[in-house]
Design a protein around this nucleic acid. Structure first.
Lengths: 333, 333
DNA sequence: TTGTACGCGTTATCAA
DNA sequence: TTGATAACGCGTACAA
């Protein structure tokens, strides 16, 4: 049987109130001696207050939920790392949930988290289905959205945003600055919001440089390695001098295709990626790429959520800017 | 104010006992009509039982803790994924804790988890310091050790083990089978248990093939990319025909050194790695490597732990065998 | 400065 | 077949 606050009270010859007070640092009205005695007994008995009982009365658990598609995906692992750090630094624990992009699982987790009394959640919602934020989602605790972006016109959604338009702009601008004019783009699906945002950034850069955007130099990939190969193969045929792949995986595929065509990087073709996954710096040549501060974003999500929980002021959105990681896969022409 | 079991009872014109019974499927003695009525009210009011109150009396939370060094490390992310899956399938949630190999943090988490009433924990302990399992570790709930291996002579430690000796054996044997005799090894630190185990496997393979083990063909690395470069450079000088790198990161380094020496893989030098990280199949040529079923191991850890929690029978150790992933970085000589 | 007693939302025992 | 009530371990008015 674990020792309770009553046991401690008895051993210290005081009431439970006294114990509770020193436990919660509300002991300004407790005499020095009493406090010392209590502290001593607590240590001796190795007493740990029962968080369940405590939470039952205080109505807070100091636990938050984290709903992401899949922790074994490096992207989300980094976000999770940041979120856990942020939460831990403020005295919160995080319950990990892998939704697998499955609506049903998401709902089940949401329900479990509610039952467990988590104080709030960080979520990368399955789809843009608004249901989550209305009827189906009867979770009345605060939440913060990460990874997906919602228009914040009338809705009231707290979120961590990443400026994908700027990311696309940065990559393209970098190539233009180095004299490239025939720039091929390997994008994600046309239905992918992220990809479309990045493409918007590309177009912006072209426009500023007065380069007319050539639709035929845009290849629709799917963020996978193979589509990087295919895309590069296609673009090489089009005579591009540089390729912007919208993630590093596709950039690696592009490397493969370029080498297969008997060409060199960056001498014959420059390549720029997006994500800065671990291997990108181990490639030969090391890949120049765009980085998203994932850990920082996770941390920010936790901090924003906890401020909401504590009813402290917080902006409704936190914006993060992409950063270019300059390595050796791009050359000036 | 959330709706409680009392509200439901009142609305359904029955007692809380009745509600509780149908809630917990102990409703064999509840009339059909009553049950239907209760169920209806529960749905209408969207009532969710308060898990805290429930746990307070049942003395179980259906939550387990997962203590790992760092979730942003792919290795642990995979284990975490498996553990979460295993736990979820049995109705448990998992609290994620990053210890950063920091003893202090580990202790703090352990204490927090105790306070929160987690039913058990899965832990990759900091060091082999036995303290964790004795005095300092006053956590009386079940736990399962993962990633590190303890002798189970007198102690009573439940753990998920991976057969590193066999892994080293498999890799070496694979090279020997293909006619290699001058085999270079890029190991981890001499103090690293894992590395020493794998090396033991190598020696076993040599012995069986009646090849005398040449100490000068053993390079002490540190699991990092750079030490893979250095190691390969050294071994090439020694005239090896094959290199066994004890992780893929070092194998990638070896690729770099081999290419830098103007040699080809696998024509001039064969390379075999260990881990099967994502990129290993994207390398050119794709890397032959040894795989550890990380997700499966995480899952097994959760299942073992929960069996312990439920006081069901479980073996004290679960062994996992390495598997060779055959690709194109090794050739027969 | 310290203590009594109630409430938090459940489950479980036992009586009706 | 159903219900009253005592735990569970803690925080906190309010009283002393």
């Amino acid at each position: 049987m674990p020792v309770t606050i009553y046991d401690v009270a008895e051993l210290a010859h005081v009431s439970v109130t006294t114990i509770s007070k020193v436990l919660n640092h509300k002991d300004f009205d407790i005499s020095y001696e009493t406090r010392q005695r209590v502290l001593k007994i607590i240590k001796e008995t190795n007493f740990t207050p029962n968080g369940l009982a405590r939470s039952l009365v205080t109505k807070k658990t100091n636990v938050i939920g984290l709903l992401i598609p899949d922790i074994s995906n490096q992207y989300f692992a980094d976000i999770a790392r940041g979120a856990e750090d942020g939460a831990n630094s403020l005295g919160y624990n995080v319950i990990l949930c892998n939704t697998d992009e499955n609506h049903q699982k998401e709902l089940e987790y949401l329900n479990l988290l509610k039952e467990k009394g988590t104080d709030g959640i960080i979520i990368a919602p399955i789809s843009l289905s608004e249901k989550i934020f209305t009827s189906e989602f009867s979770y009345e605790k605060p939440f913060v959205v990460i990874d997906r972006v919602y228009e914040n016109k009338c809705k009231n959604i707290y979120q961590i945003c990443f400026d994908n338009v700027q990311g696309g702009y940065l990559a393209t601008q970098y190539l233009i600055d180095r004299g490239h004019r025939q720039i091929g783009i390997i994008a994600g699906s046309r239905k992918n919001r992220t990809s479309m945002d990045r493409l918007e950034g590309c177009k912006k850069a072209f426009e500023q440089a007065k380069i007319v955007f050539d639709e035929s130099l845009l290849y629709e990939g799917n963020y996978k390695y193979e589509s990087g190969c295919g895309g590069a193969e296609y673009l090489i045929g089009k005579g591009v001098t540089a390729i912007f792949a919208m993630n590093d995986l596709m950039a690696i595929g592009a490397y493969k295709a370029v080498f297969a065509a008997g060409l060199k990087i960056p001498e014959d073709i420059s390549v720029i990626g997006y994500d800065n996954v671990m291997i990108s710096e181990l490639l030969d040549p090391p890949l120049t790429t765009i980085m998203q501060p994932k850990i920082e974003m996770g941390k920010a999500a936790a901090k924003m959520l906890i401020r909401k929980i504590r009813k402290e002021y917080t902006d409704i959105e936190a914006f993060f800017e992409p950063q270019i990681i300059e390595r050796q896969s791009v050359r000036s022409v």
